[in-house]
């Protein structure tokens, strides 16, 4: 039943044990598909390529469809060679979060998911990507329901694009920007090259507030996230009526799997998940500032 629930790649720097524990629970959970891999910083090396692929195989054997997600900001030769090795060695679909991954996927004739940072905002862009091997498109995080609906209407009438799956950021903190600078290191007055991989001490990032104590953003290495999780669960009837294929959730810990269970139950039984935590956001969906939240549909 649509939408399928996908689990986004862990956004933070966790130890190998923490990752293994998390994915052991994921394997038993009700998520349909799992995105694996490091998407934020190449210095985070709890698992190497072989170990990611091993984990992917394990999860696959347990019935989960696996997609290998890739780095968003690629700056160095070593990052490119890691990316090339991953795409070359993998039998799984990859998620391209940068056009470098698109080029390499084409080189090895591998299909790919177009991640949200490829900035595909229109069907003309999607057509180019589909010809390059895209099988699924994750909408940009700032795209509104109206824009998405406009684009999906055209996709449905297009002989190529009608086969492309559509995915949205359904639940979890929004990836809002990436930089050369490491902001976690900056909080400790350290330059990135001497960052001491401090991120591992902050398993859900560091909160950045306004001077009036509004929780605004989450510092996560070179990435800035929204502090509030985006929550489109209250919009599920609309998501279903639009025929969106995949609803991605991001976890900060294992409680995400309880939420997935509730979403599944809501989708099959028509139960309503009460919005307990109003400290969420979904403004983008309504064409408003992203931090706004509407849950009383």
């Amino acid at each position: 039943m649509k939408p399928k629930i996908t689990l986004g790649p862990v956004q933070y720097y966790w130890s190998k044990q923490a990752l293994m524990d998390f994915y052991a629970v994921a394997a038993e959970s009700q998520v349909d598909e799992i995105y694996l891999g490091e998407t934020v910083c190449s210095k985070r090396r709890s698992l190497n390529i072989k170990e990611w692929l091993g984990l992917a195989n394990e999860l696959s054997k347990m019935g989960k469809k696996v997609i290998l997600s890739t780095l968003t900001l690629i700056e160095s030769e070593s990052e490119i060679s890691q990316l090339r090795s991953l795409i070359k060695q993998s039998d799984f679909t990859i998620e391209a979060n940068d056009y470098a991954a698109v080029t390499i996927a084409q080189e090895f004739h591998k299909p790919f998911v177009a991640g949200c940072t490829l900035n595909a905002y229109n069907t003309q862009t999607l057509n180019v990507l589909a010809k390059a091997g895209m099988t699924r498109w994750h909408a940009p995080v700032e795209m509104s329901q109206q824009s998405l609906s406009d684009i999906m209407q055209v996709m449905k009438a297009d002989p190529i694009l009608k086969h492309i799956e559509v995915e949205i950021h359904g639940y979890g903190r929004l990836p809002l920007s990436h930089a050369a600078r490491c902001f976690t290191a900056r909080t400790a007055n350290l330059p990135k090259d001497q960052c001491q991989t401090l991120c591992i001490q902050h398993p859900t990032g560091i909160t950045m507030q306004s001077q009036d104590d509004d929780d605004l953003f989450q510092i996560n290495g070179i990435q800035i996230q929204s502090h509030k999780p985006c929550n489109l669960i209250p919009c599920m009837p609309q998501v279903q009526s639009m025929d969106i294929d995949l609803f991605r959730v991001y976890g900060e810990d294992e409680s995400i799997f309880e939420l997935v269970k509730d979403i599944k139950q809501q989708n099959t039984l028509g139960t309503h998940i009460p919005v307990i935590n109003s400290d969420a956001c979904n403004g983008y969906w309504f064409g408003k500032p992203g931090l706004e939240f509407k849950y009383d549909m």
């Binding site: 700032e142 990436h178 500032p289 931090l291």
Partner: peptide
């Protein structure tokens, strides 16, 4: 611009308008 250009949605997160859109 300190963020990688084209992939910064901080402005639209607070105001609704971003460089991209």
């Amino acid at each position: 611009c300190i963020m990688v250009e084209g992939r910064c949605y901080l402005s639209s997160y607070l105001t609704g308008d971003s460089p991209n859109n």
